[in-house]
Simulated scan of single mutants.
Amino acid sequence: MDKYKLLSDSELVSLLKKRDRGAFAQIYDRYSMMIYYKINQMLREEDVSKDLVQDLFTAIWEKSDLIKDDVGISSYLYVASRNRVLRYIQRAKTKSDYLNEIGKYSLRVSDETLEKIDEKDLMLLITNEIAKLPTKMREVFELSRLEDLSHREIAERLNLSESTVKKQVQNALKILKARLSHYNSLGIILLIFLRSN
């Protein structure tokens, strides 16, 4: 086992992908406490945090082929652990103060890669919710938010009154905010994307 201690993270990941138990054990020894600490910082529940760590490392062993070669294992573990925490909170429907803490914690993360991953996932979520809007409402909303047209420009383009356009945008915002309200970590993107007119 000592030979594994001398290996770099990328060497360990290469061996892990070949189902090397020693490499897996070394990755676990190297990172499990750090991941536990980060998860427990967010949840403040020791038993749940331990379970999520075990779940994460079990998944890494079972799906090691999904780890990309150009992503460091520490970044991969961090993203995967944070995603598990968010899913746990979502499933458990815990109090909103947990979500607020996660939001504050997420804002302190400065790693550009993580921010890009988060933004891509969040925008996909928003796009999916927009697609579920009624057809006319979606059309008006997309012209307002994606093409950045004014209510007057939308009214002229769609042959509607400005008040109808305004009402459609307001209704779309109300629906989207309700559907996305439990994702407090969307904060900044929602403020930009779902701005009020």
Rank of each mutant, 00 (worst) to 15 (best):
S81T: 01
D47G: 09
E142L: 10
L52Q: 11
K5A: 12
I117S: 07
Y88F: 14
F141Q: 11
I154M: 08
E101M: 05
I89Q: 00
D148K: 15
L66V: 02
S8G: 04
R19P: 01
L86Q: 05
D121T: 09
I35D: 02
S196V: 10
W61E: 07
Y105P: 00
M123I: 11
Q54W: 05
I192Q: 12
Q41L: 14
V85P: 01
I192Y: 12
D121V: 08
S14E: 14
A80R: 04
L122E: 07
R30H: 01
S150I: 05
N128T: 08
S163G: 11
L186W: 05
R145A: 14
L173V: 11
D70T: 11
E119L: 12
Q41G: 10
I35T: 14
G187S: 11
A131S: 11
D65W: 13
K5Q: 12
K18C: 08
K50Q: 10
K18T: 05
L7Q: 14
S75I: 06
V53M: 05
V109L: 12
T58M: 14
L146G: 03
E162Q: 15
G72N: 05
E62S: 11
L6D: 13
V140W: 02
K38G: 13
N197M: 10
E101I: 01
L190P: 00
K120H: 11
V140I: 14
S10K: 12
S163H: 12
K93I: 06
D121K: 09
S74Q: 08
D111L: 10
F24A: 05
F24D: 07
S106R: 03
T94Y: 07
Q26M: 05
I27S: 01
D29L: 02
D65T: 13
I189G: 06
V85G: 02
V79E: 12
E115Y: 14
S196G: 07
Y28S: 01
I89W: 00
F193I: 12
I27V: 07
I189C: 06
I188Q: 11
Y98L: 08
K38I: 15
E162G: 09
G72Y: 03
Y28P: 00
S110V: 07
Y4L: 06
H182K: 13
Y88R: 09
Y4Q: 10
L6G: 06
I117Y: 15
N159D: 13
Y98F: 15
I126E: 02
D118M: 08
S75M: 09
D69W: 06
L86A: 11
G72C: 01
M33H: 13
G22R: 03
A178R: 15
L77H: 02
L176A: 09
S185D: 01
N159H: 13
N197E: 15
T94N: 04
K136F: 03
L114D: 11
K120G: 06
L124V: 09
S110W: 05
E62C: 12
E129Y: 07
A23C: 13
L6P: 00
Y105C: 00
N184P: 02
K132T: 10
